[in-house]
């Protein structure tokens, strides 16, 4: 038995509810904290970004028109499935160098964070919607509406918690997203894709690509069909490029180079409203 060669998992991408390989066929080695190779992950290119964009766009109308209550149920379901996969994530986070207790804490917090945002889905428009006083014979009200397709540059720290903290508010608000997983450790992100796939999330709502972030960021941030970018990684060159490209079609751009995603300030409804547009309706009323 001792001669047995261990079967290493092949990490693919998660796009449109499926697990395809990169269109390029390229991979790159992922190393653990002490520099040993632990797996290969797909090295996605601009074409993978383009293909993910198509599915994210076509998933948008279905996801955004679901009832907020239903979106909340689905987010809750993700939390349930994540809870059931604790052991796998525990192993992956320990490989990345986390201490046992820290890893366990990170997984628990990720589950809690999903549940936190699951609760917000049907409260966002109650809390942030307004009825506006106007001088004419109109009933005038404003409601938050999802921005559309959001590109997410996942953080390089807190591999699971950071990822959950950026995906949950975006999809809770009815957006769909394309996530560029952490470059140094994409494994929890891809495994999280498996969780999503098991938990009633319609294909295409969350799409996770792995690879060299700087190779994909220019195409993601310049794509005219992307409506917003949430950059949670800390890289000043990428940040400049995102700002410049975002100006092409005036994307909503948020930079959060966060050091510690465990902080409770990342449970915050304003992170949902970051990717919401205000729609104001003038409804005629009789005098």
């Amino acid at each position: 038995m001792s001669d047995r060669i261990e079967v290493l998992k092949t990490y693919k991408t998660y796009v449109g509810g499926k697990f395809p390989r990169s269109e390029s066929g390229h991979t790159y080695p992922v190393k653990d904290s002490s520099g040993n190779k632990i797996a290969n992950a797909c090295r996605c290119t601009r074409k993978d970004v383009r293909d993910a964009m198509v599915v994210a766009r076509s998933a948008f109308s279905g996801w955004s028109s679901r009832s907020a209550y239903n979106r909340g149920q689905i987010l809750y379901r993700i939390a349930e499935m994540l809870e059931g996969r604790k052991e796998q994530f525990q192993k992956e986070l320990e490989l990345a160098g986390l201490k046992k207790k820290v890893a366990a804490r990170e997984i628990e917090q990720s589950v809690d964070r999903l549940i936190y945002y699951a609760g917000w889905t049907d409260k966002i428009s109650q809390v942030f919607g307004t009825v506006n006083p106007v001088a004419s014979a109109h009933f005038n009200f404003s409601m938050p509406d999802p921005t559309g397709v959001v590109g997410i540059i996942a953080p390089d720290n807190n591999h699971l918690l950071g990822l959950v903290s950026v995906i949950a508010p975006v999809i809770a608000g009815g957006n769909t997203c394309i996530v560029l997983a952490s470059e140094s450790n994409p494994l929890p992100a891809i495994t999280f894709g498996e969780v999503l796939n098991d938990s009633d999330v319609p294909g295409g709502v969350v799409n996770i690509l792995s690879g060299i972030q700087s190779e994909m960021i220019s195409h993601l941030s310049s794509h005219m069909d992307v409506n917003g970018v949430w950059n949670a990684a800390n890289n000043s060159d990428n940040r400049k490029q995102i700002d410049e490209n975002g100006a092409l079609n005036i994307k909503r751009i948020i930079h959060t180079p966060v050091v510690d995603w465990a902080d409770e300030k990342h449970e915050n409804p304003y992170l949902i409203t970051n990717f919401q547009e205000t729609k104001t309706t003038w409804h005629p009323v009789g005098n």
Binding site: R50, M53, H219, S222, H223, M224, D225, L248, N249
Partner: peptide
């Protein structure tokens, strides 16, 4: 241009 387009434009 090298930039992917969107049909909304």
């Amino acid at each position: 241009t090298g930039i992917y387009q969107s049909n909304i434009y």
